[in-house]
Nucleic acid binder design. Structure first.
Lengths: 141, 141
DNA sequence: TTAAATTAGTTGTACATACAAAATAGAAAG
DNA sequence: CTTTCTATTTTGTATGTACAACTAATTTAA
């Protein structure tokens, strides 16, 4: 039978890659006690104290509602603080999130090493570039 | 601040692409009344009547438990039938799923046209190839 | 020929994420 | 000013997906 779509359809291949890399990322981030997405979110907040949720959602390419949920979780674990300012919400690091930063950066490094070891440094970085460019085009569309 | 990981980390970029392409795919599959994954699953079952759940899970690169859920849904909508045979389950098409096939194939074609129009035919197909190759490597690892 | 190991599938539970609708605040227009 | 419009966030709800633990069937080995 013709199941070539499994290999040629971008919907398929990119979801597959996404599941594969997420699995690796979760392994490498286990030491942080966070899933990778939350780890990166903390880096963003730590690096830009007072950033708005809207900006965070844009940077991470997730919807505002998803971002609300993310911050809810971080706040619940004292890894971020909200300060309401009119209709926007400013997000700040906490002591705890600042302490975690080193561990997160280490995990992030391990993650990159881990997939680069499999794909090759150059190929991995080229792939990521290509994917980024395509994402941007498809989001704009 | 240094937020370059948003652009250089494969975990990030590939999840982003995955969300973007999934959104497009959902639009194009709206006419089928199914989400894209279920559409492709039906094509697979229709094309291989009696395929086992294990084989389906492997082809789609999802876990067996996920596949159980998928088939539950299809069966609930009379778009697939299970036949238990010892410890394995064989999955068969139904009248309804066979009728839907034309619509699904059309959606699948529209999807490919749609992202190829944005990325360019050659680039899109090359990207998908590269992504596939990397997925395979990362899954094996 | 029974006991142990392996394999296929299911179930409970959890998490990331989205969309649509509601709440709230601020800005613009009358 | 007050009404209307717009922007930001939140909430309710739904979906896709995974893992771990379980059940049931088959195979292997004693």
């Amino acid at each position: 039978m013709d199941d070539s779509f499994l290999r040629t359809c971008l919907f398929f291949t990119s979801n597959r890659l996404s599941r594969a890399i997420t699995k690796i990322a979760e392994e490498q981030f286990a030491s942080t006690g966070l899933s990778p997405m939350y780890g990166y979110l903390i880096l963003l907040v730590n690096g830009t104290p007072g950033i708005t949720q809207k900006e965070l959602a844009e940077k991470l390419s997730v919807t505002p509602s998803t971002l609300t949920r993310f911050i809810d979780k971080l706040e619940g674990r004292h890894l971020a603080e909200r300060k309401v300012q009119g209709k926007t919400v400013l997000v700040y690091p906490t002591e705890k999130s600042k302490e975690l930063e080193v561990t997160i950066r280490a995990a992030s490094r391990k993650l990159k090493e881990s997939y680069s070891a499999v794909l090759g440094l150059d190929d991995a970085s080229k792939l990521s570039d290509d994917i980024l460019a395509s994402s941007e085009l498809l989001e704009k569309r």
